[in-house]
Design a protein around this nucleic acid. Structure first.
Lengths: 333, 333
DNA sequence: ATGGTGATTTCTGATTTTCCGAGATCATAA
DNA sequence: TTATGATCTCGGAAAATCAGAAATCACCAT
């Protein structure tokens, strides 16, 4: 039990157990507490929520022991909030308004949402990420039209802040204009070493970047692939022995499968077979190679349109349910 | 019961009863639902929250009938969220984080808060509002020092955006720079007609602004009093018959009490006696006269300092408990 | 096919919470 | 001092909650 000194400050234990509070609090207590605080009388609060006064008294008492502080000053005319009670009241209102938020979200399902969303992507995403995602989205929201625009990374960012695009699917690892953009990353893809079958590095227990430096290296050129490569090679004070550069991922696959070189690319692009049907193996490299993070990006300034909002929510949902998680389609290197 | 069609959309009733949802939802349901959604298995969720799986199943079932939609897709390996369930999940997280917010607020009581707050006011507030408020505040927070600065309205606003003041107590009805300032109004004071005893207008059933226009009018000059007066007189296409202007409210009181004129001023300044001890009556005017709204103002850009935050909270608390409500000290006109 | 496995769900009874209603209590006003 | 109007306390009944056993179900290997 806590006591108030003459000037109304709590003098008892400051925080008995906040742990217990979050796990034992009841919405019933919150509702009754708010009713009492707003009416100033237990009886009025009871009739407001439609139960007997004694139940309200009980709930308030529970809340007081739970919070470990006296919430009301009781006097003959009723109850008035203490300062601590007043502070708790605003938090309790937050809780109830969160509940109401959930309720209104339920009453306005966006199953029949409509409108159009202009979505920008970079080429990497467009090739390996977008198509299956869009299929699932169109199936669930047939009345939302998605206009897809492919552009260079900087142009996508510029278009977002200019309002030309609603949102973008792109690599968020190296976003330039973070001040004006918000992002939610959906997938972290590891970058791993691609090898032809029976390659000598497959027999090694651990493969280092120095090992890879000895091999002929095929460098992909799309998006920021080359810049990223030189970044983490440079951090290790090494250089790949680049023997071929191409903008085609299929060409990379063929080169690797035909034992003409190796490469390090993200799991998102990996497929176990080349176009010709030859197998491609994959190995983890014992080095600090950043993951490739792709996600949704939108301008910070304006709130998302309804359609864009449901697309964003859908992306999270689709990721959570495994729709676009590349690792689940992958062998364990 | 609702059903999912092959593409996973709910086809049942859209919103059975949102009313019931907000009044019957339980934190228990929310907690268990989140646990199941995060683990994807009833058994794991049960051990996470420390109860039996059957109880979890029950709670999830309750939440599904309460929300009127299927929240999980059940299969042999466990449960995965439907899209609707995913959407509800984020709202449920909101609810729980609101609960946690309340908890952390309880563990960090600001009873022992300290620091200094520089508070700006205009003259009207300083005379009729501030002193008793500060007394009560200092009694509750003796370790927070309040430095009071009195200035003209425009200077107060400029000082707030410049960061010279933490907050201000002032009239919020006619704030100029609303773009850069946030405000919370504490008191709405009606503006009413001040009359000497036995004045002829006291016998009238209703008093219009046209009636007042016939009387000699005493115009107070402090703050925006004159601008406000001409604003609402102008809106009624009338003009007061001003016979005296003064910057002293005491002078106004004396003039009215000694039958030298009438005036219209806010209840906040009203006292039933003049300095000489003569009585002053008050009457409501049947006209559209704006109320005088005074409250707390602070710059929108930066978050409030800890001390300023508790001062703001205290003002709301003090108002709610009747500390600075002028009407409770007033006769009913 | 067929039984095994690992999960959810259903069912039942025990425990706890929640509620009501009747007194007890208390502070204030007449 | 008494009356009043409020809260608080204390039963017992109803409802919610829980645990554990049994039932069910989908999938997988044999």
């Amino acid at each position: 039990m806590n006591w108030l000194n003459p000037i109304g400050r709590v003098t008892g234990a400051p925080n008995p157990n906040a742990e217990r509070f979050v796990s034992a609090l009841t919405l019933r207590q919150v509702r009754y507490f708010i009713a009492v605080a707003e009416t100033g009388r237990v009886s009025a609060a009871a009739s407001m929520v439609g139960i007997s006064p004694s139940a309200v008294t009980e709930a308030v008492g529970e809340l007081e022991t739970l919070s470990g502080m006296k919430l009301f000053q009781r006097h003959s005319r009723g109850l008035t909030l203490t300062y601590e009670g007043h502070r708790l009241l605003s938090h309790c209102r937050n809780i109830l308004s969160a509940v109401e938020g959930a309720s209104t979200a339920l009453t306005q399902p966006d199953s029949d949402a409509h409108g159009t969303v202009t979505l920008a992507t970079t080429i990497t995403i467009a090739s390996y990420f977008l198509a299956p995602l869009l299929v699932r989205f169109r199936r669930m929201f047939p009345n939302i039209e998605i206009a897809v625009v492919e552009a260079k990374r900087l142009d996508v960012e510029a278009g977002l802040v200019a309002g030309d695009f609603d949102l973008a699917l792109m690599l968020v690892s190296n976003l330039s204009n973070r001040a004006a953009l918000l992002s939610h990353t959906l997938v972290h893809s590891m970058r791993r070493l691609w090898l032809p079958p029976k390659h000598r590095l497959l027999r090694q227990d651990v493969v280092t970047l120095a090992d890879v430096a000895q091999e002929p290296y095929v460098q992909l050129l799309i998006d920021d692939a080359e810049a990223t490569t030189s970044a983490y090679w440079g951090a290790h004070r090494l250089k790949p022995n680049i023997t071929f550069r191409t903008e085609s991922v299929e060409a990379v696959r063929s080169m690797v499968a035909s034992r003409s070189g190796v490469t390090i690319l993200s799991d998102m692009m990996y497929r176990p077979w080349s176009l010709e049907g030859d197998r491609i193996e994959v190995r983890e490299v014992a080095a600090d190679i950043p993951t490739m993070n792709t996600g949704v990006v939108w301008p910070r300034a304006m709130p998302l349109s309804a359609g864009a909002g449901t697309f964003l929510r859908f992306c999270q949902y689709d990721y959570d349910t495994g729709g676009l998680d590349a690792r689940r389609r992958m062998p364990v290197g």
